[in-house]
Amino acid sequence: MSKFILGATLGVAFLALAGCATEQPSGPGASSATPEAAPLVTLDDSDRQIIDQTLQTASRGMVGKAVPWSNAATGKNGAITVIRQGYTRDGKLCQEFHLVATKGVSRSQQVGKACRQSGKWLPEGGYTLGS
């Protein structure tokens, strides 16, 4: 009978400790275990210029190869990866690309489409970064 009581006592102690481990801090100055989302990276005109140049380079490379870009003036960097290339029904050459932009701990990305026009790849819809 004493073994059962000891086992039951240990079980209660275990449950009490397990409950303590899941309690969240509260009150002023308490920190939350859930990190806040990092802010989105926004691009200025100088970032867009560098990204446009990188898009031209990435398009000449292999599909699936990440081509890095960096803007020392703004501290932002990232990469462009061409996902696939092909022709539209009306014969226009287009490509789908993945753009990543980072600054510090913030990271944003976009999947976009660029089409060939006047000898240059032009993104359709510009760059609209999200998380």
Score class of each variant (00 low, 15 high):
45 D>V: 00
38 A>F: 03
97 F>C: 13
87 Y>C: 04
60 R>I: 01
76 K>V: 02
1 M>R: 05
76 K>A: 06
53 Q>K: 12
91 G>M: 01
11 G>E: 08
11 G>I: 12
16 A>P: 00
61 G>Y: 14
128 T>P: 01
5 I>Y: 05
102 T>P: 02
34 T>M: 09
19 G>M: 05
107 R>T: 14
114 A>E: 03
81 T>V: 13
52 D>M: 02
88 T>R: 01
59 S>H: 08
68 P>H: 01
43 L>M: 03
18 A>N: 14
49 Q>N: 08
40 L>H: 02
38 A>G: 13
33 A>R: 04
52 D>K: 11
119 G>V: 09
129 L>P: 10
10 L>E: 02
93 L>S: 06
111 V>F: 06
64 G>M: 00
8 A>C: 08
66 A>K: 10
43 L>C: 10
95 Q>D: 00
38 A>Q: 13
8 A>E: 00
37 A>F: 06
67 V>R: 01
94 C>A: 13
19 G>Y: 08
35 P>G: 13
60 R>V: 01
62 M>L: 15
15 L>R: 03
48 R>I: 15
55 L>P: 04
82 V>W: 02
24 Q>K: 15
76 K>T: 07
112 G>V: 08
94 C>I: 08
53 Q>T: 05
82 V>S: 04
17 L>A: 14
103 K>G: 14
128 T>R: 12
115 C>E: 02
45 D>K: 07
112 G>A: 09
102 T>G: 12
40 L>D: 14
33 A>C: 12
79 A>Q: 08
27 G>K: 10
3 K>C: 03
121 W>K: 01
101 A>H: 14
40 L>C: 04
70 S>C: 02
42 T>P: 01
49 Q>Y: 10
56 Q>A: 07
99 L>M: 12
98 H>I: 00
106 S>I: 05
